[in-house]
Simulated assay, not measured.
Amino acid sequence: MIFSRIAGVGSCLPGAPVTNDDLVQRGVDTSDEWVTERTGIKSRYLADDHCRTSDLALEASQKALESAKMAAEEIDLIIVATTTPDYIFPSTACFLQARLGVKGAMAFDVQAVCSGFVYALIVAEKFIRSGSHKKALVVGAETFSRILDWKDRGTCVLFGDGAGAVVLEASDKPGILAAAAYADGSQAAVLSVPGAVHGGKVVGDPFLRMDGQAVFKFAVHALSEIAVECCAQAGIQMQDVDWLIPHQANLRIINSIGKKLKIGTDKIIITVDRHGNTSAASVPLALDAAVRDGRIRRGQKVLLEGVGGGFTWGAVLLEF
Rank of each mutant, 00 (worst) to 15 (best):
L168S: 06
K173D: 14
E169H: 08
D172A: 14
E169V: 11
K173M: 14
S171F: 12
G162A: 12
D184V: 11
P174F: 04
V166E: 02
D184P: 06
G185K: 13
G185I: 14
G164A: 09
A163G: 15
V190H: 07
L177G: 01
E169W: 05
A178K: 01
A179I: 01
D161F: 07
A180R: 05
V167W: 00
A189K: 13
A181L: 10
P174Y: 05
I176P: 00
P174S: 04
L177P: 00
D172T: 15
I176W: 00
A179C: 04
S186C: 13
D172Q: 14
K173C: 14
A178N: 02
I176T: 03
Y182K: 09
G162H: 05
V167K: 00
D184A: 11
V167G: 00
A170C: 12
D184M: 09
A183T: 10
A180D: 12
Q187C: 14
G162M: 06
S171V: 10
D161V: 07
G160L: 02
G160T: 04
A180P: 01
L168K: 05
Y182W: 12
G160P: 02
G160A: 07
A178V: 02
A189P: 10
A181E: 09
L177V: 03
K173N: 11
A188M: 10
V166L: 06
V190C: 11
G164K: 03
V166G: 02
A170H: 09
A189R: 13
G185V: 15
A165G: 05
V167S: 00
A183P: 04
A189Y: 13
K173Y: 15
A178P: 01
Y182H: 12
A178Q: 01
L177S: 01
G175D: 02
G185Q: 12
S171E: 09
A180V: 08
Q187T: 15
A188D: 09
L168Y: 06
S186R: 15
D172V: 13
S186Y: 11
A163T: 13
A181F: 08
G160S: 07
E169D: 07
D172L: 14
A181D: 08
Y182M: 10
G164M: 06
I176K: 00
A180C: 11
A179K: 00
A188Q: 10
A165K: 01
D184C: 09
Y182Q: 08
A181Y: 07
A179V: 04
A170I: 11
A170G: 11
E169K: 07
E169Q: 08
D161C: 11
A163E: 08
I176E: 00
S171G: 10
A183M: 12
V167C: 02
G164C: 09
S186Q: 15
A163S: 15
P174R: 03
G175E: 04
A163M: 15
Y182N: 07
E169N: 05
I176D: 00
A165T: 03
Q187S: 13
A183N: 09
V166S: 02
V167H: 01
A170M: 12
I176C: 02
A183F: 09
A189S: 15
A179M: 05
S186I: 14
Y182G: 03
S171I: 13
A180M: 09
G164S: 10
G185T: 12
D172S: 13
V166K: 01
A165P: 03
